[in-house]
Simulated scan of single mutants.
Amino acid sequence: MKVRADYTCPLELVHDMIKGKWKPIILWRLRLGATSLAKLEQDIEGITQKMLLEHLKELIEYGFVDKRTYLGYPLHVEYFLTENMGKQILEALRIMQHIGIEYLKKSGKEQELIAKNVIPD
């Protein structure tokens, strides 16, 4: 993804960096720690490996995510949040998660949140 040269404000830039259906979900999953591509694909319901790889590549380019490659066979790669931007963006995602939870509760979907282990029973 290309970064535009002109922005109205820095928020517009960050929005472009993490926009899309999957990037915030990938970042949110990585809050749990470093993990393999296969585990990310398994944990994020509905994402294809192609889309996951594309988004991981962009998140790495922007500095939110990094990867560690272990030698050997089979090759093992782990993806993780970077200390600076990766962990900082979690503050914004936590707020967004909280807003989503509150909205769903008010909409009568608390049982769905409990069933998905988003909130405790």
Rank of each mutant, 00 (worst) to 15 (best):
M1A: 13
R4Q: 13
R4G: 13
R4T: 09
R4S: 15
R4Y: 10
R4V: 07
A5I: 10
D6I: 14
T8M: 08
C9G: 03
C9M: 03
L11R: 10
L13N: 08
D16W: 00
D16C: 03
D16M: 00
D16E: 13
D16V: 01
I18S: 01
K19Q: 12
K19F: 04
K19A: 14
K21S: 12
K21V: 13
W22K: 06
P24Q: 05
P24K: 04
I25V: 15
I26Y: 03
L27D: 01
L27E: 00
L27W: 00
L27I: 04
R29G: 06
R29Y: 09
R29E: 15
R31Q: 14
R31C: 07
R31T: 06
L32K: 14
G33S: 04
G33M: 01
A34G: 15
S36W: 00
A38W: 00
K39A: 14
L40C: 08
Q42V: 01
Q42T: 11
Q42P: 00
D43P: 01
I44A: 06
I44G: 07
I44P: 03
E45V: 13
G46Y: 04
G46P: 08
T48R: 09
Q49A: 10
K50C: 06
M51Y: 02
L52P: 05
H55T: 00
L56V: 02
L56I: 00
L56S: 06
K57M: 05
L59T: 09
L59N: 09
I60F: 00
E61P: 02
Y62A: 12
Y62T: 10
G63W: 02
F64Y: 15
F64P: 02
D66H: 10
R68T: 13
L71A: 14
Y73M: 08
Y73N: 13
P74Y: 01
L75D: 07
V77S: 05
E78N: 10
Y79I: 05
Y79C: 06
Y79N: 05
F80N: 03
L81G: 01
T82Q: 04
E83C: 03
M85N: 09
G86H: 05
G86I: 01
G86S: 07
G86C: 07
K87G: 03
Q88F: 11
Q88K: 14
I89R: 00
L90M: 13
E91N: 13
A92N: 06
A92Y: 09
R94Q: 12
R94V: 08
R94H: 14
I95R: 12
I95A: 15
I95K: 13
Q97H: 14
Q97C: 10
H98P: 00
H98S: 13
I99M: 11
G100T: 05
I101M: 06
E102T: 12
Y103H: 15
Y103D: 11
L104H: 11
L104P: 06
L104D: 06
K106E: 14
S107N: 12
G108R: 06
K109F: 12
Q111C: 03
E112Q: 14
L113V: 04
L113D: 08
I114V: 15
A115I: 00
A115H: 10
N117H: 15
N117C: 10
V118Q: 04
I119H: 05
P120W: 00
P120L: 02
